[in-house]
């Protein structure tokens, strides 16, 4: 997957988790939870969806790297390059 494709995947997962939110103007370098109504349980849904859809395991210590959209794409790029 390319970085653009990964970004689209992450946005799709977020859209599923916060279906009432408009993600059109979601900024890549600002914490996702500061831009949309999302709590820790919702965040865990991102982890779960990545596991279910792509078999990606994100260790708890790495959760912080998925705090922003840009951070998530950078973190996932090497792990999803083969997909």
């Amino acid at each position: 997957m390319t970085k653009d494709q990964i970004r689209a995947v992450v946005l799709d997962v977020i859209a599923q988790i916060v279906p009432d939110e408009d993600l059109t103007n979601l900024k890549g370098d600002v914490r996702i939870r500061d831009q949309v109504e999302m709590d820790s349980m919702d965040f865990l849904d991102i982890i779960m969806e990545l596991r279910k859809r792509y078999g990606i395991e994100v260790p708890e210590d790495d959760y912080i790297q998925l705090a922003t959209l840009d951070g998530a794409v950078a973190y996932l790029a090497p792990r999803m390059a083969h997909l």
Partner: peptide
Amino acid sequence: QKKKELRR
């Protein structure tokens, strides 16, 4: 309810 509430 919001869609998110329904999901949760």
